[in-house]
Amino acid sequence: MRKVIVEKKILVANEEFANKNREFLTAKKLPCLNVISSPGSGKTTILAKTIEALKGKVRIGVIEGDIQTDIDARRIRKTGAPACQINTEGACHLSAAQVSFALHKLPVDTLDLIFIENVGNLVCPSALDLGETAKIAVLSTPEGDDKPAKYPAIFARAAVVLINKIDLLAAGDFNIEKAGADVFKINKKAKIFPVSAKTGQGMSAWCDWLEEMAAKKEIPA
C-alpha cells in the first residue's frame, strides 16, 4: 500500500467556471444575485414584481434554473425583461458552467443587474459557487420560522433574507422576530426584508436596496 497526498479541490471544474463568471461580471460592471429558497416560496413572483417596480430605473435580466420546463422564464419575459431558462434535468442545483452559458445568452450590455433564480431547494444550491456577487435567501411564512435554524448554510451566506408572504402572517404562527434572530445568530451582516410580493407590502425597501446595489456595483453596507 502506498499513500499519495493530493490536497486538491474536488469541485475544481465548477470553481473555474465560477471564477470566469466573476471576471466576466466584474468586467461588465454587472452585479449578479443568486436567489435561493425552497420550491414555492415565491421567488419568481418576487422577481417579476421587482422588475415591474424598477422599470425605467434598473434594467434586469434573469437566469432561470429549474429541473424541467420554461414556465418561469416565460413568466419573467411577460414583464419585458430578458430571461434565459436552464433545465438541470434532475440536478438539484445550478452549476457555474450552466450560468456561464446563460450569461452569454443574455443581452448583458443592456443590463444593470442579473438575477439567478436557482432550483427550488434550500440545501444544495448554497454549497455551489456560481460566481455571483451575493446570495439572496427567500423564506416564505407558511414554511415556518424554524428554517434559518434548520438550514443554516444558506442563511449564513446570504447578503439578504427576504421573508415573503407576510400577507399570510395572520393565518399562521410565523414569528418574524424569531426567524430574524436566528439569522443574526449566524450572519450579523444579513439584511432582512419582510415582504409580500403579492400585495407589494415591504417591497419598496428591497427595491431601494437593489437600486443602491445597481448604482454602486457592490453590496450596500
Binding site: M1, R2, K3, V4, I5, V6, E7, K8, K9, I10, L11, A153, A156, K185, I186, N187, K188
Partner: peptide, 21 residues
C-alpha cells in the same frame, strides 16, 4: 460574547489516495 464572524467553510478537498501496488 456574541460579536463574532463565521470564517469561510472548509473547501471540499481530495486529501489523499491509497494505492495497492
Amino acid at each position: 460574547c456574541e460579536e463574532f464572524e463565521l470564517l469561510p467553510d472548509a473547501p471540499l478537498l481530495l486529501n489523499e489516495i491509497e494505492f495497492d501496488e
